[in-house]
Deep mutational scan, measured.
Amino acid sequence: DHDVVPEDKFQETLHLKEKEGCPQAFHALLSWLLTQDSTAILDFWRVLFKDYNLERYGRLQPILDSFPKDVDLSQPRKGRKPPAVPKALVPPPRLPTKRKASEEARAAAPAALTPRGTASPGSQLKAKPPKKPESSAEQQRLPLGNGIQTMSASVQRAVAMSSGDVPGARGAVEGILIQQVFESGGSKKCIQVGGEFYTPSKFEDSGSGKNKARSSSGPKPLVRAKGAQGAAPGGGEARLGQQGSVPAPLALPSDPQLHQKNEDECAVCRDGGELICCDGCPRAFHLACLSPPLREIPSGTWRCSSCLQATVQEVQPRAEEPRPQEPPVETPLPPGLRSAGEEVRGPPGEPLAGMDTTLVYKHLPAPPSAAPLPGLDSSALHPLLCVGPEGQQNLAPGARCGVCGDGTDVLRCTHCAAAFHWRCHFPAGTSRPGTGLRCRSCSGDVTPAPVEGVLAPSPARLAPGPAKDDTASHEPALHRDDLESLLSEHTFDGILQWAIQSMARPAAPFPS
């Protein structure tokens, strides 16, 4: 592969990997390779389809078979030569091979799209000592099968071997295949498990690692696999990028399955594409389908809103127990993405979901129960707010008499603000006073009005108090039968009158 990737590009890729991570280095090298001529790309395919690569990765054979028959990708048995050289000459001794072996032994695996480039050397060096003999053996194999790289107009793939297949390693990572398949204008990513390549439709969760975000852009890794992070704060999961590491605690105790298979379609829109997988259930989501939507993949363990709600429900009964003089119970939860139609709101002032922060849900004790107040519409209280300059209440639009249902020339009671006709409430011909108009209920007259088809109010509507207090003497005590009587009149003013009279009014101040 030294004929494909020059030394300066190799060093530039290593520097970019240390600065921005393996995914960015892979993407940059792939983009550079696509700008080369067809001879360089053909050399790339020839390096990929060597015999030892085909033996190690069985899924490469179907890719090789898909090439046109007129494309010669065979390799000479006596060494490598550029395709432009007409004579089959043995190339001179390859010093770059020693360079590659020494550099890969030092860096474990470079971040390139060629056999030198995919593992994360920093994480491997940190986690190597417990498994040094086995990992050293794996390093000797890295130059042979560490990076199976493929690129063409139909298929483009980048393979990364790992030393996680050490025997006896619980939940060992089998390997990473960062794979971009450009077929019919689409893009897919796969993962390699035990020599087999699994596409998103049959993606397997190998051991402790999972394909957290099938994305090839942005600074985030394709698999949430930063070796420096180790395990999740809650004892979460091992990262795919942690090559040759000792077994780590796999999943939280509440995880239903340690080796679950995540779905390959969004649980909201039932469509495929780039998904984020939940650590607590097999569901996966688009970032845009979450509520609120996320802009980037959160670091650490992530769970959907259903799993978060289940966790909150487990903690909430203990938080609601009476604990005198104790601060509110704080339950730190990872930043969760909410699927459509589901929402768990945190306290005000918290950062938005999706940031690399930890939301704190506070379970406050329930407030003391209070008697429910009568629910009145805002339009129902409008007549009470229509007060004239002299303190006389004006008529609201649409006000109707509670007896006849007519809204023409209605009066407004100064005591309960109900609309009424003087002739309907006082049919006996009582003279109307000039000021202080009161309806039949507030004036103490319980004589029913002779209106055909309208039920008369119940005599129990009024329960006047002592006459010594004029204001308190007109406080009506309405009961269920009074409400039914008012409802039978089918008037809004009657219902409003009952609601206003049912509310307690402050006692009249004593004259000074």
Rank of each mutant, 00 (worst) to 15 (best):
H415T: 15
E314V: 08
W498Q: 03
R345A: 08
S502K: 01
V246A: 15
T408G: 04
T311G: 12
V312T: 13
G453I: 14
P347V: 09
G272E: 07
G388S: 06
V446L: 07
Q497P: 04
C269W: 06
A428N: 14
S431P: 13
P448Y: 14
F510N: 05
G402L: 05
Q325R: 12
R345D: 05
A380Y: 13
G402W: 09
S458N: 09
F420G: 03
C278S: 10
A248G: 15
P322L: 11
G444Q: 02
D264S: 08
P322N: 11
Q257G: 10
P327D: 07
L364I: 04
V312Q: 05
S339F: 10
R295A: 08
D482E: 12
P298C: 10
G346K: 12
R480V: 08
P509T: 09
P383G: 09
A419D: 06
S369M: 07
H421W: 03
A284G: 09
Q260Y: 09
E475V: 05
S458K: 04
V246K: 05
P247L: 13
G300F: 10
P256L: 08
E314D: 13
L455I: 07
G341L: 14
L385F: 14
T414M: 15
A319V: 08
D255T: 08
A284Y: 04
V454T: 15
L337K: 09
A396L: 11
G272S: 08
D481S: 03
P253A: 09
E390Y: 14
T358W: 15
P335T: 10
L411M: 00
S299Y: 12
K261I: 05
A380N: 04
Q393N: 13
E321D: 13
E265G: 12
P292G: 11
G402S: 06
L395I: 13
C404T: 02
Q325K: 10
D493W: 00
D445V: 08
C307N: 15
G349A: 08
A467M: 06
E263C: 04
C281I: 11
E265R: 05
R270N: 10
V446K: 08
P298L: 08
F426C: 03
G391N: 06
A460Q: 08
G436C: 15
T435H: 10
S378I: 14
G280D: 14
C424L: 01
G280E: 06
P464M: 13
I276L: 04
W422C: 11
S369P: 11
A477E: 14
